[in-house]
Design a protein around this nucleic acid. Structure first.
Lengths: 154, 154
DNA sequence: TTGCTCCTCACGTCACGTGAGGTGGC
DNA sequence: TTGCTCCTCACGTCACGTGAGGTGGC
């Protein structure tokens, strides 16, 4: 709190992330962000790099996976639970308990990876279709070129 | 029109595509579908495999790229323009004109591919971050396992 | 004739967009 | 003090969801 961590205003954050201030306020309203960004009601909100990274993550998940804000909130809460567990992990000396915590974290990560990979497959399929179309068009174009040069020579 | 082409009802189409009848009606209302699926107002809408394929394409672009319905409508109109050009292509004997048509189609396809690839890159980056997290968790878990077996033997 | 799915309004909702009117900090 | 960005309502919009009440086809 004593160190000046380069806290910046909502407009700058929004511009850096390619969103609008309204979106950031709405996410705060929906409980996706800690409302600690605003000390009191009516005051300017200030964000540090940590907050920006968190928002960045939310935007990536929203755009990349098309998740609803409720889904995103679940993910965030799970993430916070993981952070809490990491703290417990640092405290505890019970190795059995430590393994439980890490295994839970691992399952959570694997679920997210599965979601991303499913989306990647649909995109790959979409791209496959488009590339096939492109090949057709290119082939046709090459035929036309040959046909024209053939006319010139014949 | 004389052949029975297996036309099916809106509920069946919706179920096959994983959407709701309301979505299909809304797309028709917004001009994304030919309203020829419904002969007269108030009558049941009927769809053939061609209509279903078109809807399928719309849904894939919507989910895969996160396009708005206005964007999708533009794409569809461009697609119809391409179809019209293909008809002209079949008619015309002017090779220069034919090349123009095919080149236009090629540019259109390439723009779509660029959109898909941009989305793929963000997903790949997202996956990369998650995979790194998974590696960390796995390493930590392996360390814990070694540590526990070490206790047993010591 | 009985269900079932369909139809058309029409209002609700989610995720913001867009001003209206006013206050705060370099 | 002047701009600029910020603030809080609060209503609008886009892409549907969700009944309400009624008609159509195997």
């Amino acid at each position: 709190v004593s160190a000046v961590t380069g806290r910046c205003r909502i407009g700058e954050v929004a511009q850096r992330l390619g969103i609008t201030p309204r979106t950031i306020r709405y996410y705060e309203e929906r409980g996706l962000l800690p409302s600690t960004s605003q000390d009191q009601k009516g005051r300017h909100r200030l964000y540090d790099e940590n907050d920006v990274a968190r928002l960045q993550e939310i935007i990536r998940l929203r755009d990349g996976l098309g998740l609803t804000l409720d889904d995103l909130k679940e993910l965030i809460e799970a993430e916070e639970a993981r952070a809490a567990l990491r703290n417990e992990l640092a405290e505890t000396v019970d190795d059995a308990r430590r393994m439980e915590i890490v295994e839970a974290a691992l399952h959570y990560i694997e679920r997210q990876i599965a979601l991303v990979e499913a989306r990647q497959e649909t995109l790959a399929s979409l791209r496959g279709d488009l590339v096939a179309k492109r090949r057709m068009a290119r082939t046709r174009l090459a035929q036309l070129r040959r046909s024209r040069s053939g006319e010139h020579h014949g």
